[in-house]
Design a protein around this nucleic acid. Structure first.
Lengths: 312, 312
DNA sequence: TTGTAGGCGTTATCAT
DNA sequence: ATGATAACGCCTACAA
């Protein structure tokens, strides 16, 4: 028992014994066993994190990165599950995650079925939903409103005098929310429903190139395109250049995500910025606070910001 | 015990008892406890995966994604640790990972100190190194030679008649290996040492724009640039266009990674392709085979392929 | 096919 | 500050 304390809780032991234990441990190559410890203590210091995918262009990846890093800094490990954009075997997946007895669960950009929500609630574990705002949370939530972001994009483009505004959206819940906000705001401003080109995630530059082509085919006079991600917006800019369309004079292009190339594009990309570093860090911090028994805010809206550059 | 079998190993139990157990289990909301199971069985069905970072542009992320997905399909969970590009606290990090008693460890794009290698070997766990070829492996390895890739790029550009060839490289071990192979091959071909512009990872488009500027300042007559990632190459292309330099006529641009935008750039990007899907899947498959006691190949060179497009 | 016994390596608890 | 004891929940091994 003293040896156990010397390793897990050195402050409860004399310096002399601690050294003795440490010497013996390193002599025999002892490595602590968290599995046994977790069994008795009922704390695993493991966080389960469910994401749609860790594909390279994913717009929420920076938040996941920051979150993971923060958890590691605070002494937790992260178990990552990719859920895909479908919902098959969601139940089973949650079951096997819960069987690991994580101390908490983080859901990122993931809509969850009612049955799954019930299962998560029944588990009694702290649940953090990250990267979205738009529902009654299961437990804790750190995110921002995708609808509001879409609405802000519409208002911004309208404010720049654009009247034939189109969108390239993705068939994925968060993108759909941005689209809904975008459409609603345009309607409120008295504009006709925008032309929308839908693409399947994960979004790529090619979607932007091809999407602009389709949009121009349907209406050669569109004067603005709001894109569901910056990578798509970059595709729209390149396609415009190929077609001799001047950005922003003839076509305003607006992105979402403020990815690290946005400022370096020509023309520099006007886009919507979300503070992913802080978002991910706050999600992890609030989770750890909850685990330490001091829950503060349960819901935190991180907001967003339109970054005005040259493209719109 | 029968209940345990009904859940973990249903084939050892009558259908009738299995149903009875399942009914009871769902009535009380029973969720299996892998922690307890792992303690006795000494199998955790957990794989620890150490990566430098999951930043969005990381060129190895598709391999990690495929690997994770394969592990999940085969019934394993993945614990992800970001190590950063530094080496601080590497020992401690490995220690806490081993304390979780994972069934195996995957190191991705990660050089490991001698002490850490010893610790990993001493653990007796199967270790998979992924995404590189160039050393005596700790245990298993699935990757390709970055030196050979760099050499192939040099030979390709030379074969296209380019003689004043530069490179934009990153201060990161794999990029350094590509650089070394690139430099060696140019020397073998009788060319002078290339001008090299070094940038800090993670690489961004801006690195390409700025890097080309620096290279042209040092030598206005360079006729080719090999870039350490496609995103950097895209920056070089955009910067060339801004400066009125024609690609590929005046400047050949070559990337690395064949990211999903490479084909959609104008001019389409000539680059080096690695089959990340298969690489990640094979790494996971070989690991699981090792865990099942049937080790086949321990080292697997996945090779690479130059994708000739318009930019070089 | 089902049941019994015991232990995996730690930590909570109580005692010294 | 240290020690003794039991228990966490499952699975291995063996028996019926």
């Amino acid at each position: 028992m003293t040896a156990s304390r010397a390793i897990s809780n050195p402050s409860m032991v004399t310096e002399a014994t601690r050294l003795k234990v440490q010497a013996a441990a390193s002599k025999i190559g002892y490595v602590q066993n968290f599995v046994a410890g977790s069994l008795k203590s009922r704390r695993s210091r493991l966080i389960a994190c469910v994401v749609p995918t860790i594909a390279s262009g994913s717009v929420f990846l920076p938040a996941v990165r920051a979150m993971t890093q923060t958890f590691e800094r605070l002494g937790y490990h992260v178990m990552l599950s990719q859920r895909g954009y479908g919902v098959a075997q969601e139940q089973e997946q949650i079951e096997t995650v819960l069987a690991r007895r994580p101390d908490g669960i983080v859901l990122t950009g993931t809509f969850v079925s009612a049955a799954a929500r019930r299962k998560l609630k029944a588990s009694g574990l702290p649940v953090m939903e990250m990267w979205d705002m738009a529902r009654s949370p299961i437990d804790m939530l750190v995110g921002f409103s995708h609808e509001a972001a879409g609405g802000a994009a519409a208002a911004y483009l309208h404010g720049k005098g654009r009247r034939r505004i189109a969108m390239i959206s993705a068939t994925e819940p968060r993108s759909a929310a941005r689209e809904a906000g975008f459409v609603a705001e345009l309607q409120r401003l008295g504009l006709p429903p925008p032309r929308i080109h839908a693409v399947a995630p994960p979004t790529r530059m090619g979607h932007g190139r091809q999407g602009l082509g389709e949009l121009l085919l349907a209406d050669p006079k569109i004067d603005a395109v709001f894109c569901t991600t910056d990578m798509v917006a970059l595709g729209v800019i390149l396609e415009s250049q190929s077609r001799g369309l001047r950005v922003p004079e003839q076509l305003a292009v607006m992105g979402f995500g403020d990815m690290d190339f946005a400022a370096d594009v020509t023309p520099a990309l006007t886009t919507i910025h979300v503070d992913n570093e802080q978002l991910g860090e706050r999600a992890a911090t609030l989770m750890v606070e909850a685990l330490d028994g001091r829950r503060s805010k349960r819901v935190s809206d991180m907001g967003f910001e339109i970054i005005e550059r040259a493209s719109a």
